[in-house]
Nucleic acid binder design. Sequence first.
DNA 1: TGCAAATGTATACCAGATGCAGAAATAACC
DNA 2: GGTTATTTCTGCATCTGGTATACATTTGCA
Lengths: 216, 216
Amino acid sequence: MNVVDGRPGLRERKKQRTHAAISDAAIRLFLEHGFNQVSVAQVAEAAEVSKRTLFAYFPAKEDLVVHRLADHETETARVVRARPPGTAPLTALREHFLKGLRERDPITGLNDAPPVRRLHRMILDTPSLVARMDRFKTGAERALAQALRETAGTPELTARLAAVQIVAVQWALAQDNAERLAYGEPADARYAGAVAAAEHAFALLENGLREPPPRR
Amino acid sequence: MNVVDGRPGLRERKKQRTHAAISDAAIRLFLEHGFNQVSVAQVAEAAEVSKRTLFAYFPAKEDLVVHRLADHETETARVVRARPPGTAPLTALREHFLKGLRERDPITGLNDAPPVRRLHRMILDTPSLVARMDRFKTGAERALAQALRETAGTPELTARLAAVQIVAVQWALAQDNAERLAYGEPADARYAGAVAAAEHAFALLENGLREPPPRR
DNA sequence: TGCAAATGTATACCAGATGCAGAAATAACC
DNA sequence: GGTTATTTCTGCATCTGGTATACATTTGCA
């Protein structure tokens, strides 16, 4: 940061450009040839940086892909924290998820723009990327549990249990959508089904797995 | 398999012995020096096989540790399938988990025999092993969902959602126990708390996350 | 302009994992 | 028993992700 004006200095801007250049080159090559078919050395060469520099920006090859979703790791926690007073956490999360579906937020798996769809498909088809996504889940669980404790006074254990359930369910919904879209179904055709699935899933979370679930 | 008598031939027996020899050498070295401090070459040498042979038996280094838990991947699914007629899946799973706690089944995290405790601690302390365990969760989810569909007629989506919730919760319970024991708490001292936690967790699964949960 | 800190590079290196050709062990058959 | 075919094991080379070291360059700032 420049001391004179508050703007980011040349160093800062260069870093951002390098970061973007590496990421763009990586995504482009991965989408074109497949994640496992492209080596980090090739990515570094395409981005015109050394391999060592690449690893200074991204701790592992997988992060070249998933860093774009890093913001979403704490998204559920933020939604819970930012909910209007008097609103149950689950209610806020359901509304947020439904909003994501309406807006075709890629995180819901319901965005069929070709680049998004191909990226999702690549992730689903690459075990190491799926594994990397699982670590996101773990981070999301922790953040959500903390948010539940701090804003709803949920006891430690209950918060952890609720968090793992909620994250697991949202993930399953998104994965279901992404899978269908990855293999051709249009987002608009899936939308109604995705909404119904989400409503059903959140109802299960609220009411439990007893059969038959109480009517609403 | 020998053609003459139905018994496993020499080849089969030797394979089993080699498998065990590699696994034993690996566990011993890992527990002594740490997972990341021991190379697969050292394991192969200790087991008196070539590195190439080691990878013929175990697809990856992590599998040298986690293959012992492979049976448990389909355990919840088996419990659901084997439940007495008229029993709800969740009831059978709760009873099974409580039985595991009573018997200090390592899968519940409540076994404090030093080798088990050290193994759990090593896994918890090693990111790549934790990641490998997550893949087990995924397998368990799939198997459980299928069991729910086939034996309880649960619809596809509901089965998947129920499965991810159940597996996530059981995992969280076991991890909680294992963490406490890994750092010194005796199993007997933890037992009561573990039972209470399990009862609470299964009640949440049955009744949902609404507040306050309906009384039993 | 000059200097310190941050950043990038080249090179070598380590460890996990795979491909391949041939040696050794085992099973099957006569 | 001896022979042959198949499986299994081995040694070696190789690839790839990731890291350490030592050095060069760029940038911020006075």
